[in-house]
Every structure is written in C-alpha cells, then in structure tokens.
Computed example of a mutant assay.
Amino acid sequence: MTLKNAPAYIQLAVDIIQILEEHELDNETVLKALSIVTQDFESKTNNTSTSTS
C-alpha cells in the first residue's frame, strides 16, 4: 500500500510526523504539544456531538 492510497488520517499522521521531525524538537515537547492538540480536538468532538443530540 502506498501513502497515496492510505486513509486520510494516515496521510495526516505522516505529514505531522515529518513536520515535527523537521523542527528537531525534543520528544517531551512534542508529546506535550500533541496532548494539548488531542484535548482540543476531543473537546470539539464532544461539543459537536452534544450540540447535535
């Protein structure tokens, strides 16, 4: 399977990994930032699902 045929979430993950590696950030910084991003998108997902219920 090539990346071109991969699901959108896999393509996005690869892009994010590449961007983070290019910035040469330490792992702790990256993980903390990703935790914030995850919390933000989970909050948006929860708000969307509760407002449409």
Rank of each mutant, 00 (worst) to 15 (best):
M1Y: 11
M1I: 09
T2P: 13
T2H: 07
T2A: 11
K4L: 12
K4M: 05
K4Y: 02
N5I: 03
N5K: 12
N5L: 14
A6Q: 04
A6C: 05
P7N: 01
A8N: 08
A8Y: 00
Y9R: 02
Y9E: 14
Y9I: 07
Y9H: 14
Y9T: 06
I10V: 13
I10W: 01
I10Y: 02
I10K: 02
I10F: 01
I10P: 08
I10R: 04
L12F: 04
A13Q: 02
A13K: 08
V14A: 07
D15P: 00
D15V: 00
I16P: 03
I17Q: 06
I17S: 06
Q18H: 12
Q18S: 13
I19Y: 03
I19L: 08
L20M: 14
L20C: 14
E21H: 04
E21A: 10
E22P: 07
E22Y: 05
E22D: 15
H23A: 11
H23S: 11
E24Y: 08
E24I: 08
E24H: 15
L25C: 13
D26F: 02
D26P: 14
D26Q: 00
N27V: 09
N27R: 07
E28A: 02
E28G: 01
T29A: 06
T29F: 12
L31P: 02
L31A: 03
L31D: 06
L31T: 01
K32F: 02
K32G: 04
K32C: 04
K32S: 11
A33L: 11
A33V: 07
A33M: 09
L34Y: 00
S35C: 05
S35A: 11
S35D: 12
S35V: 01
I36T: 06
I36V: 10
I36S: 12
I36F: 10
I36K: 07
V37Q: 06
V37P: 06
T38I: 03
Q39D: 13
Q39M: 05
Q39F: 03
Q39P: 01
Q39L: 06
D40F: 13
D40P: 01
D40W: 04
D40G: 11
F41R: 10
S43P: 01
S43I: 03
S43L: 06
S43M: 11
K44S: 07
K44A: 13
T45A: 13
T45K: 12
T45G: 02
T45W: 09
N46K: 15
N46H: 10
T48G: 05
T48F: 15
T48S: 13
S49M: 14
S49A: 13
S49R: 11
T50E: 12
T50K: 15
T50G: 02
S51G: 14
S51A: 12
S51H: 07
T52Y: 14
T52S: 15
S53H: 04
S53N: 09
S53M: 09
